[in-house]
Amino acid sequence: MTNTILSANKVTKRFGGLTAVNSVNIEVKENSIHSVIGPNGAGKTTFFNCLTGFYKPEEGELLFNGHSLVGLRSDQIIVLGIARTYQNIRLFANLTALDNVLIGQHIHLKAGWLGSALRFPGIVREEKTALLEANRLLKFVGLGNKGNHIAKNLSYGDQRRLEIARALASKPKLLLLDEPTAGMNPHETEEATIFFRNLRDELNITIVLIEHDMRVVMGISEIISVLDYGQKIAEGTPKEIQNNAQVIEAYLGRGSAGNIGKDPAVVAKEA
């Protein structure tokens, strides 16, 4: 198909005696929507944290477009083009929505303290463009008229959208979404799913998605990687994953293999 944009090679992250991510290999193709699923505590978010420089993996290597990510600080990684959202929303809660998105553009603006204090013509122009861009992004995620709201006063769904707008403001090549539909109702979830697909199609952004909602995962992923106890136990297209005995075992325990062939979500309901 296309090039590999991100490749994780035998990545291992330990916390004391616990191996949260154990020798995981994942390759993400450019322009794909790649899901990472697994039961709670499987190491999905830890894997994201390794990618964004919050944790440093003990072993293995992470290559993004040929650059190694291991040992880089978070603020250096985003410059390469990896942005993320968080499982529990981490907006700049007491700032306006607009400011949140403007902060997202930080790496693309150049104003230093002297330039900001004296407002050179170039800085003024830059700031104007940034403001236009921020408003455009807010409109894009459907918050066009809420730029002046304080982030924490927005509704839950709007906060999730704002987080995505903030991540998009850094013009990423790869967007990591950590349970973006958690806490949404089915209608909102459906909208979000369409929105993610649009993101990929319109902005050519590769998306890596951690998600528990199987409808979303099966609906939009091209490839799914399944983690369990820090190890990758399966990888493949949604169809393949649905029929994978190991995956079903991880989710439902031993003895459930008879349900092979059914949608895990349906299986879960029956159980």
Partner: peptide, 26 residues
């Protein structure tokens, strides 16, 4: 002027959430 600039926003981002700020490139 500083407050309403890239620098001032970076300050406030750090105040609000240092981790998220650093993952936004600050």
């Amino acid at each position: 002027r500083l407050r309403n600039s890239r620098i001032g926003r970076a300050w406030m981002a750090i105040r609000e959430d240092e981790l998220a700020a650093s993952q936004m490139g600050i």
